[in-house]
Amino acid sequence: MLPTFVIFPALIACVLIASGALKLPQRSRTLQSFVAFGVPAPLRKPWAAVTLPVGEIILGAALLLLSGPAYLIVATLAAALMATYLAVVARSVAKRQAVDCNCFGALSTAPVSQMTIWRNAGLTLAALLAIFLPGMALGVPTQLAFFSADDWLWLTATAAVALVGIVAALVKPSVSAPTTTRDATAGQDFELVEGPDLISDPTARDAIPHTLELVSGDGAPELLYNLVVVPQKTTILIFASVSCGSCGPVLSQVGDWSRQLGGDAQIIVVTSSSRSSMTENYPSALPFTYFGAKAATEFFGASATPAAILLAADGTIASSPEYGNVIIADRIEQLASSFAAQRQAQPHD
């Protein structure tokens, strides 16, 4: 037996404990993830959003403390859990759904991606090695008792590298508090919220094609350019689909967001779903929905759903696509706050 094999159960245990501890305060986001990943309805309950992270913590602690048959049972459960996570993430990525997995609570807000698949595949492999490598049934405490000075040095170095890698992958660079900038360009009658993808310089923005067509709810062709420029409003263009689980929270809130934005901005939902499916599943989003999304999706490069793009009132593109229901909700909240601050700053007669 090589004592350094203990790194595999130790890694899985630390990941499980960290995941559970960071996920526990984020129960509402965990429930949203259940919906987005297509978890069966009976499990989309508040008790499940508590049970999952608590179970992860208990499982991780058991991996560190148990030995013998009990260890092998716990290690098998951990491997099954990692394999399940891998399967649901791979399915969502294959469907091009921008799902926020809430894997590590507030530290992980980006949608799942190919990188998430590779990470989960590596964890699944580590969990399997924690079962089948020689001496694993001895358990972590017994294996540590066999450690030499060189083994402890190797383990410490490996743990340090792993910790740096995990922190670098999860923690995003700090972003200063949102600020607003006034654009005096003609047709630009709003303040933009500063965000990571904002194109604040009007001269650097591409224009919306004058020929890009959508289809209204009554089947009439509409030019996207006219939908934005004629009413002279900022537009939040949202790409969504009825079949996309993580689009549900977005489509169900479109009406509320529109009322919140008032006359300062409009929301346009673009979809490839049929009118009948939208009517059946999200009737409140119908007044904001246009169909025939293929051309718009290709032009704007919206590679997954839900996605959102900010369009300026002068017919230019003010941001690149951003993905995931949590990020979209945050962006709209920021935009609404910016408009509210702008109104308060205006002199009153």
Score class of each variant (00 low, 15 high):
Asp201Lys: 05
Val250Phe: 01
Ala90Glu: 02
Pro231Asn: 09
Asp197Lys: 11
Lys45Cys: 14
Val269Ile: 05
Leu66Met: 10
Gly263Leu: 03
Ala78Glu: 09
Ala127Lys: 06
Ile7Thr: 08
Ser320Gly: 14
Leu227Ala: 13
Thr76Gly: 15
Gln342His: 15
Phe8Leu: 06
Gln232Leu: 08
Leu311Glu: 08
Ala302Thr: 13
Asp206Phe: 04
Ala285Met: 01
Ile58Pro: 09
Ala94Pro: 08
Thr271Tyr: 00
Ile268Cys: 02
Ala304Trp: 03
Pro221Ala: 03
Thr279Gly: 13
Leu31Thr: 03
Gly187Arg: 01
Gln97Thr: 05
Phe291Pro: 04
Pro202Asp: 01
Ser243Gln: 11
Ala106Gly: 07
Ala169Leu: 07
Leu86His: 02
Leu52Ile: 10
Thr51Gln: 12
Val175Arg: 13
Ser272Phe: 07
Asp151Asn: 12
Asp256Leu: 11
Gly195Met: 13
Ala75Lys: 00
Leu237Val: 03
Glu194Lys: 06
His348Ser: 15
Val140Arg: 06
Phe288Glu: 07
Leu198Glu: 13
Ala313Lys: 05
Ser320Val: 10
Gly165Ser: 12
Ala159Val: 06
Ala341Pro: 03
Asn325Trp: 02
Thr279Lys: 09
Ala87Phe: 13
Glu322Thr: 14
Tyr323Arg: 02
Leu138Asn: 13
Leu155Ile: 03
Leu24Arg: 01
Leu198Met: 10
Leu261Asn: 04
